[in-house]
Design a protein around this nucleic acid. Structure first.
Lengths: 216, 216
DNA sequence: CCCGCATTCGGACTTTGGTCGGATGGCTTT
DNA sequence: AAAGCCATCCGACCAAAGTCCGAATGCGGG
């Protein structure tokens, strides 16, 4: 079940929204001010956040700014609620990284449509990144292995080819060395990584090569 | 350099936007109608799309609907341009999954702020999914290997343990069979996957085990 | 200059991985 | 019921991987 966080200082409006969403099958969390809302968002990581702009203390803009600064909450869809016709408010909110806004009084259909759209969008992004081609180790450079695992340049090169499924003989040809030397280097690698066998070493290498930033 | 696609049927407005953005250091692509815009978006995968709503033929809503249906373009930030005060247009656009909107006439600062915000947001999402521990193969079940690679249950189990760096002897103990049998199954696996050696097979297995959806 | 280190290679050996052929039992097809 | 397919299993044999010696080269810093 999807979880929605409502941050709204006016009690009747807050209860209205909560009731409406609960009837639609959402799990609702509520906060009556920016600070406790921010706190709840960080702790609970809701699927969508609904937040009023005008609030005493920490207002909606402050809330989203704080959320967007934290990598843990930065991708949570954020919809804010604003008074009708206040164009500047809307723009500043969107420029802080909000995903949508709704003008008060909130119409039921608009609210539900906005929430569902943002949920669908978040799901699409997630699916694209976790399903599509997420596992793409970068075999273009041995440097990361060298620095992260504390290997020598040559050892790192040998491991790089090993992690691509090459045999010792192949690697010897590729790197222009004797097969004995390949074995020698691999032996050092095994020792430094504390593993036995090339497959275990490959796993360690892939952990690094597949988690590199900026490989797109 | 970031690439921006402008879809706008009115030539003066289109040229204005293009010039402004080029001065800011963006690479600009232009289209004067929905269809060619859609085509360009699919081929070029720009970093941001700027699109007018009112256009003869395929309008802005049609464009975004088509883009959101295709997984390749679904996460491209989409900002649409609308005539002032047309609240319904804005809402339907947002409900199709647009990321922001701007009211015409477009103010320079609003435009740049909106673009930068969406770029930053896309970058944040990307960083979160491709940087933090992305490589987490799920070794809890052999079924995916079985179905995706067309292996028998036993073969899939053997491959599952092989991909975790276990030796044939270990696997024999774990699965309660002779080491010879482990070898036999692995041989079949190699043949079915068209690979030589356990490390190459491990890579193929990880491609599947690390890309499974819903492992969060 | 000498020491440490990375890199290179060799021989001889043990262990592991991989292939080939053969056997069993369950299952469907004829 | 017989024939065939397939998954599972195993033994013997050969090839590759990995280990334990030793040793040569070249490069940088105390």
């Amino acid at each position: 079940m999807k979880r929605i966080l409502i941050i709204e200082d006016q009690a009747p409006m807050r209860r209205n929204l909560a009731q409406l969403l609960e009837l639609e099958g959402y799990a609702v969390l509520s906060a009556d001010n920016g600070l406790t809302g921010l706190d709840l968002a960080r702790k609970e990581r809701p699927d969508v956040i609904l937040c009023d702009v005008m609030m005493p203390g920490l207002d909606g803009h402050g809330v989203i700014r704080a959320l967007r600064e934290d990598t843990a909450t930065t991708q949570i869809p954020f919809i804010f609620l604003t008074a009708r016709g206040d164009r500047t408010d809307v723009r500043t909110g969107m420029n802080f990284g909000a995903d949508d806004y709704l003008t008060k009084p909130v119409v039921r259909d608009d609210l539900l449509a906005a929430i569902e759209t943002r949920l669908a969008r978040a799901a699409a992004v997630q699916a694209a990144s976790s399903h599509g081609g997420n596992f793409k180790p970068d075999f273009s450079s041995a440097v990361p292995l060298e620095s992260v695992l504390g290997l020598t340049p040559r050892e790192a090169e040998v491991l790089l080819w090993t992690a691509q499924g090459k045999s010792n003989a192949d690697i010897a040809t590729i790197l222009g060395m004797s097969e004995k030397t390949v074995k020698q280097h691999l032996g050092s690698v095994f020792q430094k990584l504390g593993v036995e066998g090339r497959t275990a070493a490959t796993l360690r290498a892939l952990e690094i090569l597949a988690n590199l930033p900026g490989t797109h």
